[in-house]
Amino acid sequence: MEKKDKNISAMSTPAIGEAGFTGDWRDMRPVINHGKCIPSVKNKPACYLCWLYCPEGVIKTGIPVEIDLNYCKGCGICAEECPAKAITMVSEGG
C-alpha cells in the first residue's frame, strides 16, 4: 500500500533543492580563472569575497574555489565583486 504521511497540519522538513536543481534557472554560468583567483594564486586561504557575497551559499572556500553549478542561479554577483576579476559569466547557450 502507498505510504501516507501522518501530518495533521502542514509542516515541512529541511532538504537541499526544495525548488529542484536551481542551476537550471541560469542563462549565464560563472567560470573561474584560477590563474587570477587569489586563493589559487597565493595557494592559501584568502579573499573569498565570492563566497561572502553569494546569495545562495553555493561557493566552497577551498583551493581552488569551487561553485556548485547544480544550484548556482547564475546571478553574477560573484563576477561583479571579485577584486581580481577572476570570474567571468559565460552564456549557457554558447
Binding site: P14, A15, I16, G17, E18, A19, G20, F21, T22, W25, P55, E56, G57, V58, D68, N70, Y71, K73, G74, C75, G76, I77
Partner: peptide, 10 residues
C-alpha cells in the same frame, strides 16, 4: 539556508 531554494536570482 540551503541551496536550491526559491529566492530570485541575485
Amino acid at each position: 539556508m540551503l541551496p536550491g531554494n526559491r529566492s530570485c536570482q541575485g
